[in-house]
């Protein structure tokens, strides 16, 4: 059997998107939770816990977009116009929160404005990412080799539900990250927020899981047909186990448990998405093979990815290791 380049690229992109969610999720979450921290030392520390790594985290989003463009140009061409409005909203949100990392330290008078930009931009980006996910899951109109719908088609109760869910989930990642990286009063606050957000995230997972199979018969079959259900049922079971561990960790204040467990919830949600979607990249209309770039494009990129992605992971790991442990009170700024 020849090597299926398309399948490999689907896996690489799936990995890139998950790497993005896992890494930028917590730093967006820290932004969303910013107003819950006291002005001054608490906010400075919260921001400093993510400042050295946020650019690298966001680069995975560029790889997600660029990789989709390169490996599945047809999917990129159909999906980007379909999610036009939330996509632009996400980008503008990321602009605001990205510049806040530096601007905030350059002014006293307008610091409040950049705190607001950091929080508002992070929340807008998180919400938009969820809406984009929902809009793609619920299906888009395809005409020929392009998008055939209008610019408000994305707006449905389901896409909004997904938006709020991602917002809650990223906030949970942010809170558990701060539990891991901070001490004292800030950590206490992060614990309390994490408890609330665990509830909100579980509710969100439950609602989206319940709603998805009703979007279309295809999703229903994928989850509930026998004997598939024997495999698919493991996902919700594992979610329950992870949730239980998270609640236990919160009660016992196991500071190093919470963040990995919250990531675990995301990983399981992601597996759930894969079950719902595969092998479609535009649900029920365009498969990864139909959208694939020619083998010469995918092979050329694979050489680079095979060499560079492990190197990227190595130095990303190094950067995290350099800034390991609790964020010092003095901050880097």
């Amino acid at each position: 059997m020849p090597i299926d380049l398309t399948l490999i690229w689907a896996a690489i992109l799936a990995f890139a998107v998950f790497a993005y969610v896992a890494m930028d999720g917590f730093d967006l979450g820290v932004g969303v939770l910013f107003p819950f921290f006291q002005r001054g030392a608490q906010r400075d520390t919260a921001m400093n816990s993510v400042a050295p790594v946020w650019d690298g985290n966001e680069t995975w989003l560029i790889l997600g977009g660029g990789g989709l463009f390169a490996a599945f140009p047809l999917a990129y061409a159909i999906l980007m116009p379909a999610v036009y409005t939330p996509l632009i909203a996400m980008l503008l949100g990321l602009v605001f929160r990205g510049v806040a990392f530096e601007y905030r330290w350059r002014t006293e008078r307008a610091k409040w404005a950049w705190d607001l930009a950091f929080c508002g931009g992070s929340a807008l980006a998180a919400l938009s990412q969820g809406v984009i996910l929902g809009a793609i899951l619920q299906g888009v109109k395809v005409a020929g080799r392009g998008y055939g719908g209008g610019w408000w088609d994305w707006l449905t109760p389901f896409s909004l539900l997904c938006g709020v869910s991602v917002l809650a989930g990223y906030s949970l990642l942010g809170a558990t990250w701060l539990v891991l990286k901070t001490e004292g009063a800030l950590q206490d606050r992060a614990y309390r927020l994490a408890a609330w957000l665990t509830g909100a995230t579980l509710l969100a997972i439950f609602s989206v899981s319940l709603a998805t199979p009703f979007l279309g018969a295809a999703y229903w079959r994928r989850w509930f047909e026998f004997p598939r259900i024997l495999a698919t049922a493991q996902v919700p079971l594992l979610v329950l186990l992870t949730a239980g561990a998270l609640v236990y960790g919160l009660k016992r204040r196991r500071e190093t448990w919470l963040f990995p467990l919250a990531l675990g919830l995301f990983a399981l949600g992601y597996v759930g998405l894969a079950i719902s979607l595969f092998p479609y990249v535009v649900p029920t209309q365009v498969t990864i093979w139909q959208a694939a770039a020619p083998p010469s494009s995918q092979a050329f990129m694979l050489v680079g990815a095979a060499i560079l992605v492990p190197i990227i992971l190595a130095y990303t790991g190094y950067a995290y290791w350099v800034f390991r442990g609790k964020v010092g009170a003095e901050g880097y700024h």
Binding site: T59, I62, L63, G65, G66, G67, L68, F69, A70, A71, P73, L74, Y76, A77, I78, L79, M80, P81, Y84, L87, I88, R145, G146, Y147, A293, P294, S296, S297, F300, M301, G304, A305
Partner: peptide, 23 residues
Amino acid sequence: GSNWSVFSDKAGPVVGPLMAYEV
């Protein structure tokens, strides 16, 4: 992709990998 989707579909196999290398 959002504003030049037809270009993306047609030129993606050539310029997309170059951008992926850039990233």
